[in-house]
Design a protein around this nucleic acid. Sequence first.
DNA 1: TTGACATATCTAGAAAATTAGATATAATAT
DNA 2: ATATTATATCTAATTTTCTAGATATGTCAA
Lengths: 104, 104
Amino acid sequence: MEPIDVFKALSNEIRLNILQWLKEPEKHFPKQGAHLPKEVSYKGGVCVGDIQEKAKTSQSTVSHYLNMMQQAGLLESVRYGKWTYYRRNEETIRQFAEYFRTEI
Amino acid sequence: MEPIDVFKALSNEIRLNILQWLKEPEKHFPKQGAHLPKEVSYKGGVCVGDIQEKAKTSQSTVSHYLNMMQQAGLLESVRYGKWTYYRRNEETIRQFAEYFRTEI
DNA sequence: TTGACATATCTAGAAAATTAGATATAATAT
DNA sequence: ATATTATATCTAATTTTCTAGATATGTCAA
């Protein structure tokens, strides 16, 4: 986990929102996919299309952002069929909080 | 304190370094100013010139960066004579750590 | 196999950040 | 008053980020 990459990833309002939305997916993505049983898709995260709709930006931009956040270690993804589900990587997020608390 | 501004301020290696250096000014600015008695100048922070020298970048850039970090709430400044001393704003830094821990 | 759909990648123009030189301002020393 | 020094601000060139349209890839359904 490179702290600079985390700071960069979160220095954009849309990306910061995405990370916060994914903290409570049931709350922010209520009419979620239905491509899969509820418990599976929430455990696996939220699909790109649902995030795009909520973020009100283009498909390519969302895909780019999600990839950027994954590179920074903030998200991880799983593919089920044609859908890619993104969810938070809580371990990195915790590590970053600890890094900030102790080293900044 | 606007979290986005803090993320932006720290998404640059030089600025992140400055914040870390100012955590232990005696360690990172040993031959510090001498414009003022040691305890005064460390309490008041480190002057722009010393930070510039350490950061190895131009005077205007450092001044710009310090101002940016102050706007974000990460630093505060005091002027003694012709020197401006910058120091950390520990309250904001603590608030941000808490924000990250609880809301991100 | 073909068609439709979800997502990723490529490309490029627009916007913002980075950076330093030039200049302005403010304080001190002579 | 003038010269010097420290810092701030202005300006502009360069680099990076943002963003979306176009296209490619992968998967499923008919």
